[in-house]
């Protein structure tokens, strides 16, 4: 289980998180939604240990990772898989090399075993024939699929998806959502998804958290959020221009 407790974070005097609290149950898919620039990526970067909060705690299985040193933090990260917004595939490597990279660097697996596993992972995401391509030769959707294969190759217990469908067409978006759901069902990891696909993402998640003004405004099941009477949540779900969300900032 992951618990974010009273998380505060500011950059150059700008307060991004102002006491955010969130509970992410083990084995569930939780999505964090909110308007662009509200601090969703900042929030999940605390879970990855890429940022340290100004105040507050990030508990992963009861361990406060904000107090850990680099070596201990790396032990936590061993169980983590991340699908970054742009894929973050290494340009100098082929797709297969990218997917194989975590196994080559972090395990003692034999070359043939790694190749076999990479091939299976690429087939799982529908890229079985694209292993020899370089990232720049792939479309946006393919890059996300390749990055998903890399994020899952070590069978992590926690996977973070940072806007996995941004910039993709609705069909590819649905296919990525389906892929996340299928792989989740197969591996049973805990997933945190940052998304703007409202309400499309609601179909695959167990819990929705709405981030607004640096705090989690409301969290609940997709049904609860869809039927919320909270004006902020309501405006965000309906995409209305009228309401408490300041659309200019």
């Amino acid at each position: 289980m992951i618990e974010l407790i009273g998380l505060y974070k500011s950059f150059k005097g700008q307060n991004v998180l102002k006491g955010a609290d969130l509970l992410i149950p083990t084995g569930k898919i939780v999505t964090v939604v909110g308007k662009s620039g509200c601090g969703k990526s900042v929030l999940v970067k605390h879970i990855m240990g890429l940022l340290r909060p100004d105040a507050g705690q990030v508990l992963i299985d009861g361990i406060d990772i904000t107090k850990l040193g680099l070596a201990e933090l790396d032990r936590i990260r061993e169980k983590l898989g991340v699908l970054f917004q742009g894929g973050a595939l290494f340009d100098s490597m082929t797709v297969a090399e990218n997917v194989a990279f975590p196994l080559k660097e972090k395990t003692n697996m034999k070359k043939a075993e790694i190749q076999d596993r990479v091939m299976r992972a690429l087939e799982d995401v529908g890229l079985g024939d694209r292993g020899s391509k370089f990232p720049e030769e792939l479309s946006g959707g393919m890059k996300k699929r390749a990055a998903l294969a890399r994020a899952l190759i070590k069978e992590p217990s926690l996977v973070i998806f940072d806007e996995p469908t941004t910039g993709l067409d609705p069909v590819i978006t649905s296919s990525i959502h389906k892929l996340i759901k299928t792989t989740h069902d197969k591996y049973g990891f805990t997933a945190v998804i940052i998304s703007h696909e409202v309400p499309g993402i609601f179909g695959i998640v167990d819990k929705v958290a709405v981030l607004h003004n640096g705090i989690i405004e409301e969290a609940g099941t997709p049904d609860e959020i869809s039927n919320s009477i909270n004006p902020v949540v309501k405006q965000f779900i309906t995409g209305s221009l009228e309401g408490p969300i300041d659309i200019i900032s």
């Binding site: 970067k45 990855m48 240990g49 890429l50 680099l70 790396d74 032990r75 990260r77 061993e78 983590l80 991340v82 970054f84 917004q85 742009g86 973050a88 595939l89 290494f90 340009d91 990279f101 975590p102 660097e105 972090k106």
Partner: peptide
Amino acid sequence: MMRISEQIDALTAMALN
């Protein structure tokens, strides 16, 4: 470019220095 495309963050997230 690796920094802005999050490739450096990706290495850190993989527990690689």
